[in-house]
């Protein structure tokens, strides 16, 4: 495989598109089933708002619990940086779940290259809701 450190922008961009495609066009059950293969089986972590999970089964359970029926998304920026063995991806965007108001969010992925494939080792999602006022 070509040196991914040259192509990290393409890899990160394509990953984000693929991930959100699977995330947004599914119900909770098929979302979990579709996304779990993207995580690195041996070691992976996810922080989705206040729910923290390590390992694919805990992450699956967390994804299955997401309660919205539909989700709409607008991506504002996708930032990528090369790592020694993968790619760091930072996303900023807006989501609307069901009839809720629109929220800004930030989402971070670490992708690790394994046998010519990339897998998620770290995933963090936070809505931009602050603790002031």
């Amino acid at each position: 495989m070509a040196d991914f450190r040259v192509q990290f922008e393409e890899i990160g961009g394509a990953f984000v598109q693929h991930f959100y495609n699977l995330f947004d066009n599914a119900n909770a059950e098929s979302r979990a089933n579709n996304l779990i293969p993207l995580f690195l089986n041996e070691q992976c972590f996810q922080t989705y708002e206040n729910s923290k999970a390590s390992g694919v089964e805990a992450i699956r359970a967390c994804l299955q619990k997401l309660s919205f029926q539909k989700i709409q998304r607008s991506i504002t920026t996708v930032d990528c940086q090369p790592l020694s063995d993968g790619v760091l991806v930072g996303v900023m965007g807006m989501v609307k779940t069901d009839e809720d108001p629109v929220h800004s969010y930030s989402e971070t992925f670490v992708l690790r290259a394994t046998n010519n494939n990339f897998f998620i080792t770290n995933h963090i999602f936070r809505m931009a809701i602050h603790n002031v006022g």
Binding site: Y48, E49, T97, D100
Partner: peptide
């Protein structure tokens, strides 16, 4: 504003 679905 909907964040309660994430317990956030």
């Amino acid at each position: 504003a909907g964040q309660e679905r994430f317990r956030s």
